[in-house]
Amino acid sequence: MAEGKVDPVHQFTIEPLFGTDHLSLAGYNIAFTNSALWMAITAFVLIVFVGGGAKQALVPGRWQMAVESFTGFVDDLLRANIGASGRAYLPYVFSLFMFILFANMLGLLPLALVGLHPFTPTSHFTVTGVLAIISFSIVLIRGFTKHGFHFFSLFVPHGTPLAMIPIIFPIELISFMVRPFSLGLRLFVAMMAGHVLLEVLSGFVISGTNAGALTFGIAALPSFLLMVGICALELLVAGIQAYVFALLTCVYLNDAENLH
């Protein structure tokens, strides 16, 4: 710590835990890593949180009220974007939103104070990419099962002149195919950028403090104050990115459900 050399991306390193380095399934390595551990913690905390609020009391307590406000939030999101048929997607979109939210939030916990190293699974595009592909797959499956080949009319906006269709169609198709990438990369980038920023600033704090009183005053202290503000911002980003992921999933599902 005192050597003042901080590697800002070291925090994203994946390390196998409990000696499971060579655990494999059908030839693929499935080592139980720190990433997997934090996904497990996320799942556990989420199950405890929602399970504790699923009491179905007629007059809800605080915990039940909190859980109901989350389900109500996602339900409103689906209703606003898809309509009444959006209810069918509530289990998936709610799980998605809450899983991302909890993973983001838990990754920001200051557990390093007690010697633990929190890990944010959503700062890996392998994770966000899989979630994006799941959302995109649901859109494709729902779109083709409900509308068949008519689903391709999604790529021809209303009122497109006939002559323009050969140009518009590939553009719309490409913008459609880019969706899973933008969806997954947005979350990954937002999470990683925030963590890197905090790590870089903490590097300033450490090296500035070690280099003497002058650098402490002009570099370390302002960086530390900035970190406090950015921590608050990161909490906001954690919520916003989970919301954006869920919102865009709803928007894409609306295309599948209602075409245009």
Binding site: I14, P16, Y28, I30, V50
Partner: peptide, 24 residues
């Protein structure tokens, strides 16, 4: 690590989907 990441994500997200999404 991609296979481990994908596998454990599917395991835990699947668990969340089944228990929270489908259950609660």
């Amino acid at each position: 690590t991609y296979s481990s990441q994908v596998f454990w994500l599917l395991v835990f997200f699947g668990l969340v989907f089944l228990v929270v999404g489908r259950g609660f």
